[in-house]
């Protein structure tokens, strides 16, 4: 009886933990800032963009350099749907992606299948 209780409790805790970790937990980790003149390299590897939160000053165009280390086709494109920017990423080399000047706000960027996810914070 107690074992049944424990299993159920663990199960429900897992559900809570999943919801908390993936949805509720605010993404507090550091956002990398980049000035228009600087060069920011985003590493595309193992299913994540690193960094996956990038801060840009508003109203200035910028260039991000995506370095794709993952040869799987998932990682091939990076899309900024709200900015109408997209780029095909070459494997093992930097691909420059020009970001136009944008209004302050958060702009998600993803791979084609949305497995890689990142956010561009314009402020």
């Amino acid at each position: 009886m107690t074992s049944a209780l424990i299993v159920n409790l663990v199960g429900l805790l897992l559900v809570a933990a999943i919801s908390w970790w993936f949805w509720l937990q605010p993404r507090r980790h550091r956002a990398e800032a980049v000035n228009a003149a600087e060069k920011l390299r985003v590493l595309v590897r193992d299913g994540v963009y690193e960094p996956d939160r990038i801060r840009l000053p508003a109203g200035e165009p910028a260039t991000l350099y995506f370095r794709r280390e993952d040869p799987t086709p998932c990682a091939e494109w990076v899309l900024f749907p709200d900015l109408e920017v997209s780029a095909q990423l070459a494997v093992h080399r930097d691909t420059a992606v020009d970001i136009p000047a944008a209004e302050p706000g958060e702009y998600p960027f993803t791979c084609q299948m949305q497995m890689y996810r990142g956010t561009l914070v314009v402020e």
């Binding site: 993936f22 937990q25 980790h29 193992d46 299913g47 994540v48 996956d52 497995m115 890689y116």
Partner: peptide, 19 residues
């Protein structure tokens, strides 16, 4: 192996994917 490292990395970024 890449599925496991990918899953771990994504997890650390509060992200979950196919891996």
């Amino acid at each position: 192996g890449h599925f496991y490292t990918g899953a771990w990395r994504a997890f650390r970024h509060h992200n979950a994917n196919m891996d």
